[in-house]
Write a protein that binds this DNA or RNA. Structure first.
Length: 472
RNA sequence: GGCCCGUUGGUCAAGUGGUUAAGACACCGCCCUUUCACGGCGGUAACGCGAGUUCAAUUCUCGCACGGGUCACCA
């Protein structure tokens, strides 16, 4: 399920919950050829991961079941026959060849392809005859040929279509299954669906739906059409293009709540300037009037920023519960994980980034002595060597190893040498980590690595710099 | 092509017949600081174009351009 689908589900859920309604899950599987193994499970899983629960559905039941459309097939034909009886639908015996022919001619002459009404006015005798002799048929909706149909959409306002532009769409297919368009209307009515929230691609078929409601004498639902979520200014986000699905984003290390928060905000805006909302807060603040009319482009950096905000808002315990597996995937040795966790928290945007941040802990990576050269810190290879040589005995003398004791010892040194902090601490950090960016400075790293490991890495740093100065 | 819809900074977006046209992300700068990050402060950057209505249009109307959707025995 890609994020556009999920967003629509979210809006539906929020609207229902906000107004004390029920959120109903119905599986629309009238196309047997497109059946995908495991698709229903993916839907369940995605909704659950997003925190959406349904009040009625295939697995939880309800008073309007069954909730899987393929189990409701017996229902639709009678409704279609009712429409035929009332004159709003008719049997059509045209085969595919004829239909294709008509379409080709229409296309060639530049007319919009549309059913030509060949079977619209067959006499009931003719129909009965063909039915009896077993000619395959479909049932088509009989569109008015004059006038127009206007409907109101909550997002887009009043929209009018000429009836003459409407195609006599198929209601019952030749395999006797209903089309989605038909089953959807019948089931929405039967299940007492009050609000239809869907993608704007359905805007142009809505008049047909409404004509169906009118023909049955049923009251129309409230329509809320949402603009699509785009991957760029011209392409829609779609699973087909390999674009990120909700599942993919979770696998990339994004938090489900953060993704939910972000995609609700894509194409909708709250009245306030806040932007971090839990699902239950969203139920309170959500309002369909905030849904925008124009498509929104999915922006990963913004999602990342929101994810980072969620991480920073976590308690230390919660942060560690997420971070631990990532840390331990590369840190096998024992260390002060609490300290590391604190260091990591403000530096983590997505949990997947953690391993590369802490990969220097278990073993010192190979590094270039260039790292010792830092303009702003005013360090170079010579004075770094000097700093490390002075640091070594100081730290060897620290008995109880802790962030505080290391800090005090080093700052005494810095003071006595009358140097800027960075002159001493930058070389230390490089020697300890072999990296230019680390989660924390030299003192924190020393505390984290422990006395023996720190001393050993400082000695390695000294050797490295000595060999360089010997070359010169 | 017909029909329907849309167009405010790079992105998400607020908003109005008269505003210094919010805010967030990204970007840049400064402060904090042992790097980075966090945090704080500041900055660059927008009403697609052309008419019309009006004392006044980003806001209302029309046209154009651009973009999207739709035109299945798919959903």
């Amino acid at each position: 399920m890609h994020v556009g689908n999920l967003r629509t589900a979210l809006y539906a859920y929020l609207l229902a919950k906000k107004n004390g309604g029920d959120f109903v899950l119905r599986i629309e599987d009238t196309d047997r050829e497109r059946m995908v193994e495991g698709a229903i499970e993916t839907i369940y899983k995605t909704l659950k991961n997003a925190g959406i629960s349904w009040d009625e559905g295939p697995d939880v039941g309800g008073n309007y079941g069954p909730y899987i459309q393929s189990e409701r097939m017996h229902i639709f034909k009678d409704y279609a026959r009712e429409l035929v009886k009332k004159g709003y639908a008719y049997y059509c015996f045209c085969d595919k060849e004829r239909l294709d022919q008509v379409k080709d001619i229409q296309k060639a002459s530049g007319i919009a392809p549309k059913y030509d009404g060949h079977c619209r006015n067959l006499s009931s005798e003719e129909v009965q005859k063909k039915l009896k002799s077993g000619v395959p048929y479909v049932i088509r909706q009989k569109m008015p040929q004059e006038g127009s149909t206007t409907f109101h959409d909550v997002v887009f306002g009043e929209i009018t279509f000429e009836n003459s532009d409407l195609d006599d769409q198929i209601l019952i297919k030749s395999d006797q299954m209903p089309t989605y368009n038909f089953a959807n209307v019948v089931d929405d009515h039967l299940m007492e669906i009050s609000h239809v929230i869907r993608g704007s691609e359905y805007l142009s078929s809505t008049p047909k739906y409404n004509l169906l409601y009118d023909a049955f004498g049923w009251s129309r639902p409230v329509y809320i059409h949402c603009p699509p979520v785009m991957k760029n200014s011209t392409e829609k986000l779609s699973k087909r293009n390999g674009d990120a699905t909700f599942e993919d984003l979770l696998n990339k290390g994004y938090l489900p709540q953060a993704v939910v928060n972000y995609i609700v905000m894509l194409g909708w805006s709250p009245k306030s300037e806040e932007e971090i909302f839990s699902l239950s807060e969203l139920v309170d603040v959500f309002d369909v009037s905030g849904i925008s009319k124009s498509p929104a482009i999915f922006d990963l950096p913004k999602l990342t920023a929101i994810n980072a905000k969620y991480i920073r808002n976590m308690s230390d315990e919660e942060f560690w519960s997420y971070a631990e597996p990532y840390v331990k995937s590369v840190c096998k040795r024992e260390l002060d994980f609490k300290l590391l966790s604190q260091m990591l928290k403000t530096r983590t945007e997505i949990f997947k980034d953690i391993p590369q941040q802490v990969d220097f802990i278990d073993s010192l990576p190979k590094y270039s002595s260039d790292l010792y050269i830092h303009k702003k810190m005013k360090t170079n290879e010579e004075n770094s060597l000097d700093a490390l040589r002075k640091i070594l005995p100081i730290l060897e003398n620290v008995d109880t190893w802790s962030k505080e004791s290391v800090h005090d010892a080093l700052f005494d040194l810095i003071k006595s040498l009358n140097l800027k902090n960075g002159r001493v601490l930058w070389p230390l950090r490089v020697a300890l980590s072999g990296k230019s960016f680390t989660p924390g400075g030299g003192i924190e790293l020393a505390a984290l690595l422990g006395k023996d490991e720190s001393i050993s890495r400082i000695k390695k740093g000294i050797e490295k710099l000595e060999s360089i100065s010997n070359q010169n």
